[in-house]
Design a protein around this nucleic acid. Structure first.
Length: 213
DNA sequence: TAGGCCATCTGGTCCT
DNA sequence: AGGACCAGATGGCCTA
């Protein structure tokens, strides 16, 4: 609530800002420059000419031009506001999609809402775990003995051989990895830059793989 | 109080 | 030309 409302506050602030910048009420204290398109470039007006008639003509010209500039400014402003609106909607759609993804992912015990990046990573791990489940189930249907090494590794337990269980060995025939490690995509146990992905993998694997047995 | 997460704005780029 | 997408900037909220 607070974030959204604060966003609206900011939006209204921007609108206020825009309304402050509205040149429909502009006078001659500022003149438009050719580089306005590249940003807000209002410069103090240069000293007015001291000539008589030419000054009048110049004022007429400038007044007409100012009106035109005001129109251009309003058009730009409207375009920008429409673009902001589309961008807001686009991000809302993205967040809706993330919420939909969260809803199909298993909830953590403490029921804390996954952040965006956690949602994506966990979804990746979850898909990988499900794939492994299918693969192992398929293997089991052919040779149940193949399951033993895999099951012994669940819960990050040491392998029967004494060395700490490593995911690559547990899933030696695995076709893919749930890890987002930048350096080693073939090893689910590889420590990534963030350190906690391995926990996600173990969690997803231990939580869902045994459920089919 | 620093850091993480988030929403929004904005300008640039690409696509239709 | 206008919309979609993207990345950077900014500022608010929350938590350790």
């Amino acid at each position: 609530m607070s974030i959204v409302s604060s966003g609206y506050i900011r939006l209204s602030t921007m609108e206020t800002l825009y309304s402050d910048m509205d040149t429909s009420s502009c006078d001659y204290s500022f003149t438009h420059t050719d580089d306005e398109d590249s940003g807000s470039s209002l410069h103090p007006a240069s000293p007015a000419s001291s000539c008589g008639k030419p000054e009048l003509q110049q004022k007429k010209r400038r007044r007409g031009r100012a009106r035109n500039e005001a129109t251009v400014h309003v058009v730009k402003k409207n375009r920008r506001m429409k673009a902001n609106d589309r961008e807001r909607n686009r991000m809302h759609n993205l967040n809706d999609a993330l919420d939909a993804l969260r809803s199909v992912l298993p909830a953590f015990p403490d029921d804390t809402k996954l952040t965006k990046i956690e949602t994506l990573r966990f979804a990746h791990n979850y898909i990988w775990a499900l794939s492994e489940t299918i693969r192992i189930a398929d293997q089991k249907s052919r040779d149940p003995a193949l399951l033993l090494p895999v099951l012994s590794c669940m819960g990050d337990a040491p392998s029967p051989g004494g060395d700490s269980c490593s995911w690559p060995s547990c899933a030696s025939s695995s076709s893919s990895s749930p890890s987002y490690s930048n350096s080693d995509t073939s090893s689910p146990a590889a420590m990534d830059d963030f350190g906690y992905l391995q926990t996600d993998v173990v969690y997803s694997y231990t939580k869902f793989v045994p459920s089919i047995y």
